[in-house]
Write a protein that binds this DNA or RNA. Structure first.
Length: 592
DNA sequence: ACGCTCGCATCAGGTGGGAAACGG
DNA sequence: CCGTTTCCCACCTGATGCGAGCGT
C-alpha cells in the first residue's frame, strides 16, 4: 500500500527542476541513456542484467525461436534465518514459450527478470551474480530444479505497459487490472510450495503526469515497511497442483488505507515460490528454496485517479466491469475485429486529450500484431533483458524493449525484508487464514471461484487475457466430470515441448498469418461446451457468430482447445478438490 | 417421483466519471 | 488557488437461488 504510516512522501513541490528527468519513454528509447538510475549510482549494477556486451543470440542462448523455457541462473543465495519471505529477492525469469498449454496463446507469456540480491526495492544496486545463461541446463525436476513462470495475460499487460500502466488504489482496495496470472512449470511434483505475490517499489522516483507524459518528480519514499505480500490461498500446495492450473491473483486488491501518504510511484509485482514442508512451514535449512520472478510488463504506477486517458480507455475497453463506460458499446461488438475491444487509440474520443497523437503511430492491426507476434522476437538471452526498472516506456520504446523479455529464475534463501513499499495488497473476501503470512496479512474468507471463471462469455475480448479464460467453460461441465483446463501436469512442460516448438516454428515461418489462422480455426475447434458459451457470448454481445475473433480471444480459445485436447486424450489429471474455483483473494495490510 | 438442466430474477460487488472535500 | 483524494452514482458482471421443463 502506498502511504503506510510513517511513510512520508518524498515528493515535494520544491524539488529541483534538475531532478526532474525527461519522460521515461525517452530514456528507454535510448539505450545509451536508458540507464535510468545511472544518476543514482546504479548504472553499474544495472549492467548486470543488460550485459550489452553479450551477443543476444549466443550459441548458448536460446534462439529467438527457441521454445524451451529459459531457466538461467542466477545466484543461489544462502538461506537466511531472517524473514521467511524475503521481500527482496532475486528475480528470475523465463521467457514463456508461446503456446504453453493451458494458458493460451502464444504470446501470452512473458519472462520474468532475475535480479540480483536487492533490497526490498528493485532499484537498489543489483549485485547478482553470474550470467543468466549459466544455468540453461538446469534440471527440470528433482532437487535444485528451477521453476519456470509464465505470465499468462501478457498481451494485455503489454498493451497497458506501452502507455505506462496505472493502477487505482483506494482505501477499500481496488482490484488490479489487468491482474496477475501465471503458469508455473518446473516444480517438483510432490514437493510443497507457497506461492505469493509481493509488490515492491520499482523505481526510486516519484512520478507525476505532466504534459501528457510521466515525468520523475522527486524521490519516492522507500523506507516504509508495509505488507505487500499476498500469499495465494491455495498455499501451501504441491508442485503438481501449482503446475496443473493457472495461478491467478485476480482478486488481489491494492489499497492505501493504512497509509498516510500516497506516492505516485512505480511498483513492480513479484511472484515468489517458496518450497515448504507439508504443513506450510518454510524449510530454511536448505538453500534455493525460494524462487522469485519478475515481469517488467507488470510494473505500474499507483494512482488515486487515472492520469493517462489512454490507460483509462484501455481499462474501459478491456475490463468487463467498466463496460458501462464504453461510449460505443453496441457498435463495438458489431464493428470489425480490429475496432473492437482493442480500438484504435486514435479513434478513442479521449486519446488526444493529453497524450500526443504520436503515441498511436501504429495502426490498430499492427498493434495487435505487435502483441501477438512477440514470441518470435522475445527469445533473447537475459543479457539483453531490459531491467525491470526501466519500464516507463513510451510506446516506441516499448516496441523495442518488449522484444527482449527473457530472464532467469533464481533461487534464494529466505532473506531480507520488505523495505520498499507503500502499496498494500488487500484481499477483501477471504478467509484465507494462514500462519504462513509473516507480514500480518489479515485472514479473510476466500472466494472459491477461480479467477478464470470470470467472464466466461468473453471469448472474443482481449480482456479474456486479463480475466482468464480457462475456467470459462467449467460451469458447463458436469460436476462429476473431473476437469482440468490444463493438460497433464505430471509431465509438465516437457510433454508439450514438441507441440509448442511446432507452434513457435509456425510463428516464425508465418507470423503474419498468426492471427488469422487462429481466428479461422477457432470455431471449428471449439468443444461443445465452448461453442455453447461462445454462442451465449455472441447473443449477449450481439456479436456476429461469423464475425472475427480478437487476437486474444483466439488465444484463449486456443488455450481452451489445448486443454480440451488434453482432456480428450485423457492426458489430464484430475483437479484437486481445492482447485475448482479457488480464486486468489488476498488481503494484505500494512503493519501497524 | 426423482434428478438434472436451463432460464430468469435477485443480489453483491467492481468499474470509471464527476463532483465535493481536502490539503499544501 | 490548484492539485490531489474521496465519495457517490449509474452501469455492468458474476454468483446464487428458484422454479419450470424434461428425461429416466
Amino acid at each position: 500500500m502506498l502511504g503506510t504510516e510513517g511513510e512520508s512522501s518524498s515528493f515535494s513541490s520544491k524539488e529541483a527542476a534538475g531532478d526532474r528527468r525527461k519522460s521515461p519513454a525517452v530514456e528507454a528509447e535510448d539505450p545509451a541513456t536508458g540507464s535510468r538510475y545511472s544518476e543514482h549510482g546504479m548504472g553499474a549494477d544495472r549492467s548486470y542484467y543488460l550485459h550489452s556486451t553479450v551477443s543476444k543470440q549466443s550459441p548458448e542462448t536460446p534462439s529467438p525461436c527457441s521454445f524451451i523455457p529459459y531457466t538461467p541462473s542466477g545466484t543461489v543465495y544462502t538461506p537466511s534465518s531472517a524473514t521467511r519471505y524475503p521481500s527482496s529477492l532475486h528475480l528470475s525469469s523465463v521467457l514463456p514459450p508461446a503456446g504453453f498449454p493451458p494458458c493460451s496463446g502464444r504470446s501470452h507469456f512473458s519472462p520474468a527478470y532475475q535480479l540480483g540480491q536487492s533490497p526490498g526495492c528493485l532499484y537498489p544496486p543489483y549485485t547478482s551474480s553470474g550470467s543468466a545463461l549459466s544455468n540453461l541446463n538446469l534440471p527440470t525436476t528433482g532437487p535444485g530444479m528451477r521453476a519456470q513462470v509464465y505470465l499468462c495475460n501478457r498481451p494485455l499487460w503489454l498493451k497497458f505497459h506501452r502507455h505506462q500502466t496505472e493502477m487505482i488504489i483506494t482505501k477499500q482496495g481496488r482490484r488490479m487490472f489487468p491482474f496477475l496470472s501465471f503458469n508455473i512449470a518446473g516444480l517438483n511434483l510432490t514437493a510443497h510450495y507457497n506461492v505469493f505475490v509481493e509488490v515492491v517499489l520499482a523505481d526510486p522516483n516519484h512520478w507525476r503526469f505532466q504534459g501528457g507524459k510521466w515525468v520523475t518528480c522527486g524521490k519516492a519514499d522507500n523506507s516504509s515497511q508495509g505488507n505487500k505480500v499476498y500469499i495465494h490461498p491455495e498455499s501451501p500446495n504441491t508442485g503438481a497442483h501449482w503446475m496443473r492450473q493457472e495461478i491467478s491473483f485476480s482478486k488481489l486488491k491494492l489499497t492505501n488505507n493504512k497509509g498516510t501518504n500516497i506516492n505516485t510511484s512505480q511498483y513492480q509485482p513479484r511472484l515468489h515460490i517458496v518450497e515448504v514442508t507439508e504443513d506450510g512451514v518454510e524449510d530454511i535449512s536448505s538453500e534455493g528454496k525460494t524462487q522469485s520472478f519478475t515481469f517488467p510488463e507488470n510494473q505500474f504506477i499507483a494512482v488515486t485517479a487515472y492520469q493517462n486517458t489512454d490507460i483509462t480507455q484501455l481499462k474501459i475497453d478491456h475490463n468487463p466491469f467498466a463496460k458501462g463506460f464504453r461510449d460505443n458499446y453496441d457498435s463495438m461488438y458489431a464493428a470489425p475485429e480490429n475496432d473492437r475491444l482493442t480500438p484504435s487509440p486514435t479513434s478513442s474520443p479521449r486519446a488526444h486529450q493529453i497524450v500526443p497523437g504520436a503515441r498511436y503511430a501504429m495502426q490498430p492491426l499492427f498493434q495487435d500484431q505487435f502483441v501477438n507476434n512477440l514470441p518470435q522476437n522475445r527469445y533473447y538471452n537475459s543479457e539483453r533483458a531490459v531491467p525491470q526498472t526501466n519500464s516507463l516506456l513510451s510506446p516506441q520504446a516499448e516496441d523495442a524493449t518488449s522484444q527482449r523479455w527473457f530472464v532467469t529464475s533464481m533461487q534464494q534463501g529466505g532473506n531480507g525484508t520488505s523495505t520498499s513499499n507503500k502499496l498494500d495488497l488487500t484481499p477483501y473476501d477471504g478467509e484465507y487464514s494462514s500462519s504462513l503470512l509473516p507480514y500480518g496479512i489479515k485472514s479473510l474468507s476466500m472466494q472459491t471461484s477461480h479467477a478464470l471463471s470470470y467472464y466466461p462469455d468473453s471469448p472474443f475480448t482481449t480482456m479474456s487475457a486479463g480475466w482468464g479464460s480457462r475456467a470459462a467453460y467449467q460451469r458447463k461441465v458436469s460436476p462429476s466430470l473431473p476437469w482440468s483446463a490444463r493438460p497433464s501436469t505430471t509431465t509438465g512442460f516437457p510433454e508439450d515441448l514438441d507441440k509448442v516448438k511446432a507452434q513457435i516454428e509456425e510463428e516464425v515461418n508465418g507470423s503474419a498469418s498468426l492471427i488469422s489462422s487462429w481466428t479461422e480455426t477457432q470455431p471449428s475447434t471449439l468443444s461443445l461446451d465452448k461453442a455453447d458459451s461462445y454462442l451465449t457470448a455472441c447473443k449477449r454481445r450481439r456479436l456476429s457468430l461469423n464475425g472475427p475473433i480478437t487476437e486474444d480471444s483466439s488465444s484463449d480459445i486456443k488455450c481452451e482447445d489445448l486443454a480440451s485436447a488434453a482432456i480428450n486424450s485423457s492426458s489430464y489429471i484430475k483437479d484437486a478438490p481445492s482447485s475448482k474455483g479457488m480464486a486468489a483473494y488476498y488481503s494484505f495490510y500494512t503493519n501497524p
